Amino acid sequence: MNEDLTGLERIIGYNFKDKSLLDQALTHRSYATEHSGMVSDNERLEFLGDAVLELVMTKLLFDLYGKEYSEGDLTRMRAFLVNENQLASQAQRLTIGEFIKLGKGEERSGGRYKKSILADTFEAITGAIYLDGGLDPCFKFIKSIYDELLKNVTSQFKIDDYKSALQELTQAKFHVVPTYRVERISGPDHNRSFEVALIFEGDVLARGKGSSKKKAEQEAAKKALKILKDG
């Protein structure tokens, strides 16, 4: 176990005013149990960190993709970014496992490398940063770690793309592709609403509304897919 908490602070990019919070964030229940409750484990900090992480990730995703993707897509992105595998991967990259305080039994069983323990400790550190410095350093911490993943998250799994699905269907079945026409834009600049018509074989097949042109087109394509498949 590496006891150089200053070294860990350098790695995570945050200096604690209250070092005991970081120490607690690194204390697994097995260690606290072996020391007869003389030290506090990290489970409550983990509970707090889980909520903070979800809030921070939600805001980061909203800022990057809120105008382009649906609520369902954003939820799936967030779930992908904060699942146990991802959190454990980030903890490994930051060498957090080297600093965790484990009981002897957990140490012997390889607890320092268990995904669940690494992920929980990552959340506990996030909770500790929040208690020590508030939300701003949490945003800085998470954004610096997840920067590349956030930029590329849409390529990590399939986002519902009704336009592409419709184009594949119409090309294969009818040998034509639909076009889209913006019929109306309303609302103030900060809250625009777009209405789009989907043109297929010269006629309006479906219409869609959304807070962006892309969302409106996706909505129209979704309706058109249903019409063509049901028909």
Rank of each mutant, 00 (worst) to 15 (best):
N2W: 03
D4I: 08
L5I: 11
T6P: 03
G7Y: 04
L8V: 01
E9C: 06
R10I: 07
N15Q: 11
F16N: 00
K17V: 09
L22V: 00
D23H: 07
A32S: 11
T33G: 02
M38N: 13
M38S: 12
V39G: 04
D41S: 11
R44H: 10
F47K: 14
G49M: 00
D50V: 06
E54F: 05
M57Q: 10
L61E: 02
F62H: 10
E68M: 15
S70F: 07
D73W: 03
D73H: 10
L74P: 05
T75Q: 14
R78P: 07
A79E: 14
F80T: 06
F80V: 03
N85P: 03
L87A: 05
S89Q: 05
Q90N: 08
A91W: 02
T95R: 12
I96V: 13
G97S: 12
G97F: 03
E98D: 15
E98L: 10
I100N: 01
E106D: 12
E106M: 13
E107Y: 05
R108E: 15
S109F: 10
G110V: 11
G111Y: 03
G111W: 06
R112N: 08
Y113E: 13
I117T: 04
D120G: 15
T126K: 00
I129M: 01
I129H: 00
L131P: 04
D132P: 00
D132C: 00
C138N: 00
F139Q: 01
F139P: 01
K140H: 09
K140M: 05
K143P: 01
I145D: 04
L150Q: 07
L150A: 13
V153P: 01
V153M: 03
V153L: 04
S155W: 05
F157D: 11
D161R: 05
Y162K: 05
K163F: 03
Q167F: 08
Q167C: 09
E168W: 04
L169A: 08
A172E: 13
F174L: 09
F174P: 06
V177H: 06
P178C: 11
T179S: 15
V182C: 10
E183Y: 05
E183D: 14
I185K: 13
S186F: 03
G187R: 00
G187A: 01
G187C: 02
H190I: 07
N191S: 15
F194I: 10
V196T: 07
A197L: 02
L198H: 06
L198T: 10
F200Y: 08
F200I: 08
E201P: 02
G202V: 07
G202M: 07
D203R: 13
L205A: 12
R207E: 15
R207N: 13
K209M: 10
G210P: 09
K213Q: 12
K214Q: 12
K214T: 11
K215A: 13
E219M: 09
A221S: 15
K223I: 15
A224Y: 02
L225E: 08
L225P: 04
K226L: 14
L228N: 03
D230G: 12
D230P: 01
G231I: 05
G231H: 08
